[in-house]
Write a protein that binds this DNA or RNA. Structure first.
Length: 896
RNA sequence: GGGCGGUUAGCUCAGUUGGCUAGAGCGUCACGUUGACAUCGUGGAGGCCAGAGGUUCAAAUCCUCUACCGCCCACCA
């Protein structure tokens, strides 16, 4: 074995081994309990970034832990078609050829997309393999593969048939140059300089009204041209200033239309004049108000943002030209009161930077309230738990205010909405309600004839579904849902059995950003389509940030590439460093240096193992896997490490059960390095009894098991070298350690700890005194029993403290120091510097005196004695006694 | 504007039902090659637990307020 651990070859070798032997694969197994995680499917366009590394390491840790614990552990992998992102990639490709998607048409464009997916779609999957992800790759799914598409259609059809899907009008982001709808993410907000115009709307007094009203009311707007489509004015219901509006008619300037006056809480009385013009077809907020108050929607623009016939004399003008013309006309009529400079934030097309025009258009929606009802209930009742628990509140708060979900998208890459229209029926019902279902056929396949009129003039809906409409089915569609249409003994029938075995899944691991987009919707989908929650627990981890707290993103140029870390330091180092740094739900602040801790630890494991393996080399005998201590004599150190080991196993297991991965990581790190290596391994160099060889191998074996979920590669590599009886060909499937049945009394552990304390004191003392040579110190135990303990363990105590220890000789003029159970003496002539030690002792006395004062005050307080539990009072007294004794002892220290 | 968090050592964070002298890693300083490891070992320094009130025998921990920082959602006529 080399003196340094080299991950590169090791990692590749073992991953290949695992994959070839199908160790990642899981199937229905009646002898085992299932454990299942579905991966948050990464985008096919994605390349592995640090967020993926964090997210997937957590999942792999849990999956590997449960697998070792004997569960049938399934990690379901897959990728997401990521509608807009993927379409953009291919559109950009086309643009290089000077083409637009419209030039080649929908069919050819989709061919290009599939070709792209075939070539690049598995990039991220290969990167996940480098990370060590133990997914069942045979089950790899894609949100647009054949079976999955069927699931999406079925989901749509079922919701439609239940009346939970409807078509209605909605305001979308529209780029008048590209003539396409844009998602919010594609229309980033930019602040631009603009004006706030104050326009006077004339008032006409109702004949019946007695009170006097002004001639006009002033309204502020940044987009005066939209006034052509105004259908109302709105004021706050609490705003007493405008109560008179009830008694008059508001006349829309230029157009002459009479406007409704409505009251709505959304209107901010303090802002501008406190009166808002409502243009339902050209502003998102106005649209919402209009729906609430049943206002008319007047669309005044064409696709290219020129004014249409609703705009009277302005017809044909571009929106900005129209703005000037409208302002000019208002000014002429004396209706433009003033204008003020104003910063406007408005969406801009991510491609051509054209200002977005909010546009009214027909979209498909899911009614969410009925779905949310049960999804709220299961979380309230604790059937689904969030980790950390505070996310429960966030979830419930959102769910209780849920809005209908717009599921249609005007792009080509995605699941085309399974809706067909009969042209004849549509034409017949053209004038009926816009969201009526006449002429709409919802079907998995294109029908040949209209069921109502028999016409065969049928065409499919152009829009595709929002990507999340496929993702929300992920926990069951990946298993082959829907199963109903299949016979039970078919391939699909087996899939159903598997599904019933693994569903509901156990843990969902995700970042908080997609709690609403994805997690909440999966809960609703699970309950709606399966009648059962999709997962029992939701583990929400933090965001990956750079060292200064900025979100890691390509555009900021502050990313740390996980693949680079893997290449330089190994996947184990990456995984371990992330888990050590990511406190539960805490954001992770990373710099490249922070990954060194993992590399160093891997090297530590490597070298400790090297020592143990070399030590055991000449012993031919294979070690048994389990510990049999019958007839064996254990030293104090043996008992201590076994006792600590037991605690470790207990901690690791319960931390992992509670999804406290960071705590588990820390516990195993602390034990391995600072207990096993720093103490037991060192002691073992001086305690060469036969059982020691076995115990070293035994504990190493168990530590490798405990570490395996974190660092699968190095642990497998070393484990394969161990000369022990192995129950499986791979550490991946070796048993998770259980606590040992030990009878170790607390007194012995205490004796060990006091020797440990003695060693630390000797080291510090020696250093304080400026002694570098190996000299003789005299140690005087406080009682005979301690004397015996020291005698028995003298060789390693002396070795570890780097001093000779004599017990017979006490120097006449001596120095002594701070351990409770032992006094230490040294020949004064050896001392080079006493001052440092003196100072330290004095500081210690001072510190303890303050503490003593506090404890004495407590004990002289009658209410403390009366109210505090007896146990606490006793402990306080005991502590006071011990500390007082220590102070006395420190004070007795003589320097000459 | 609504909701949710955070503030503990120079930095990043533990501190789970209030009760042993508030811990760890990194960094820093000093010493050091002792039978695996300098990607190491050993020892040290470093904290009015953001501030102010309150509850309690007892508060880093519970409550209220203040200040600062952050996240999510909505909105900016």
């Amino acid at each position: 074995m080399e003196t340094r651990y080299n991950p590169t070859d090791t990692e590749e070798k073992w991953y290949k081994f695992w994959e070839e032997k199908s160790f990642f694969n899981a199937k229905k197994n009646p002898d085992k309990k299932p454990f299942c995680i579905v991966i948050p499917p990464p985008n096919v366009t994605g390349i592995l970034h640090m967020g993926h590394a964090l997210n997937n390491t957590i999942q792999d840790v849990l999956i590997r832990f449960k697998r070792m614990q004997g569960y049938e552990s399934l990690w379901m992998p897959g990728t997401d078609h990521a509608g807009i992102a993927t379409q953009n990639v291919v559109e950009r490709q086309l643009a290089k050829e000077g083409l637009k998607k419209e030039d080649i048409g929908r069919e050819k464009f989709l061919e290009r997309l599939w070709a792209w997916k075939e070539e690049y779609g598995s990039t991220i999957i290969n990167q996940l393999k480098k990370l060590g992800a133990s997914c069942d790759w045979q089950r790899l799914r894609f949100t647009m593969d054949e079976g999955y598409s069927l699931a999406v259609k079925q989901a749509f059809i079922r919701l439609f048939n239940k009346g939970l899907i409807y078509k209605g009008n909605y305001i979308i982001n529209w780029c008048p140059r590209c003539k396409t709808a844009l998602a919010d993410e594609e229309a980033p907000y930019k602040e631009i300089d603009g004006w706030l115009y104050y326009i006077r709307y004339p008032l006409k007094k109702n004949p019946s009204s007695e009170s006097s009203v002004p001639d006009y009311i002033t309204v502020a707007t940044t987009r005066p041209e939209t006034m052509l489509g105004d259908t109302a004015l709105a004021v706050n219901p609490k705003d007493v200033r405008y109560k008179f509006l009830k008694d008059c008619q508001v006349i829309l300037p230029i157009v002459g239309r009479v406007l409704k006056v409505i009251e709505d809480e959304l209107v901010e009385p303090e802002f501008c004049t406190g009166v808002v013009k409502v243009t339902p077809a050209h502003d998102k907020n106005d649209f919402l108000i209009a729906k609430k108050h049943n206002l008319d929607f007047i669309n005044i623009m064409n696709e290219d943002a020129t004014i249409n016939e609703q705009g009277l004399e302005f017809k044909g003008l571009d929106r900005f030209r129209a703005r000037e013309a409208v302002l000019k006309r208002l000014e002429e009529e004396g209706l433009l009161e003033k204008k003020e400079p104003y910063k406007i934030s408005a969406g801009h097309c991510y491609r051509c930077n054209t200002m977005i025009e909010p546009r009214l258009s027909a979209q498909w929606f899911v009614r969410m309230k009925p779905l949310a009802k049960q999804a709220i209930k299961v979380v309230e009742e604790g059937k689904i738990e969030f980790y950390p628990g505070r996310w429960k509140k966030v979830y419930l708060n959102w769910m209780e205010n849920i809005q209908d979900w717009c599921i249609s998208r005007q792009i080509w890459w995605g699941h085309r909405i399974p809706v067909y229209y009969c042209r004849e029926c549509r034409e017949k019902h053209q004038n009926s309600e816009s969201d009526s279902n006449s002429g709409i056929i919802v079907s998995e396949y294109q029908p040949s004839k209209c069921g109502v009129c028999g016409s065969s003039d049928i065409y499919q809906e152009e829009d595709v579904l929002d990507t999340w409409f496929s993702s929300w089915l992920w926990p069951f569609a990946t298993f082959g849902w829907p199963f109903e249409s299949q016979t039970p003994d078919s391939e699909i029938g087996k899939k159903k059995e598997e599904f019933e075995y693994f569903y509901p899944t156990d843990v969902l691991v995700t970042a908080s950003e997609i709690l609403f987009f994805w997690v909440a919707r999966m809960i609703m989908a699970g309950l709606e389509f399966i009648g059962e929650i999709p997962f029992k627990r939701v583990l929400i981890h933090g965001t990956v940030r750079d060292i200064r707290g900025k979100k890691m993103s390509k555009s900021l140029g502050n990313i740390i590439d996980p693949l680079e870390i893997i290449n330089e330091l190994g996947a184990d180092s990456l995984r371990f460093s992330l888990m050590l740094q990511a406190g539960s739900g805490q954001d992770v602040y990373l710099s490249k240096e922070k990954f060194l801790v993992g590399r160093n630890f891997a090297n530590k494991i490597w070298n400790a193992s090297r020592y143990i393996l070399e030590r055991a080399k000449d012993k031919e005998k294979e070690h048994p896997a389990e510990l049999n201590l019958e007839g064996k004599i254990l030293t104090l150190a043996d008992k201590w490490i076994l006792y600590e080991y037991n605690r470790l196993v207990e901690e690791c297991t319960s931390f992992l059960e509670e999804l406290r991965i960071h705590d588990y990581t820390q516990a195993v790190y602390e034990f391995f390095w600072h207990k096993f290596c720093d103490w037991y391994l060192e002691i073992s160099k001086k305690e060469s009894d036969e059982i020691k060889d076995f115990l070293l191998v035994f504990i190493l074996d168990k530590c490798l098991r405990l570490l395996h979920p974190l660092m699968p590669f190095i642990t497998e590599d070393i484990w394969q070298r161990l000369n022990i009886k192995k129950e499986t060909p791979t550490l991946m499937k070796a048993g998770w350690p259980k606590t040992l049945d030990l009878t170790i009394n607390k007194g012995e552990i205490k004796n060990f700890l006091s020797l440990k304390e003695l060693i630390i004191s000797l080291r510090a003392f020696k250093k304080d005194l400026g002694i570098k040579e190996k000299v003789s110190f005299s140690v005087k135990p406080k009682n005979d029993s301690l004397s015996k303990i020291l005698e028995e363990n003298l060789h390693w105590v002396s070795f570890l403290s780097r001093v000779e220890i004599s017990r017979e000789k006490t120097y006449p003029k001596v120095v002594s120091t701070a351990t409770i159970d032992y006094d230490i003496f040294v020949d004064k002539s050896l001392v080079k510097n006493l001052e440092l030690h003196q100072k330290r002792i004095e500081a210690k006395i001072e510190e303890l005196s303050v503490f003593i004062q506090g404890e004495e005050a407590k004990l002289s307080n009658p209410s403390f004695l009366r109210e505090a539990p007896q146990e606490v009072v006793e402990r306080t007294k005991q502590r006071l006694k011990e500390v007082s004794e220590e102070v006395e002892r420190l004070k007795r220290i003589k320097w000459s």
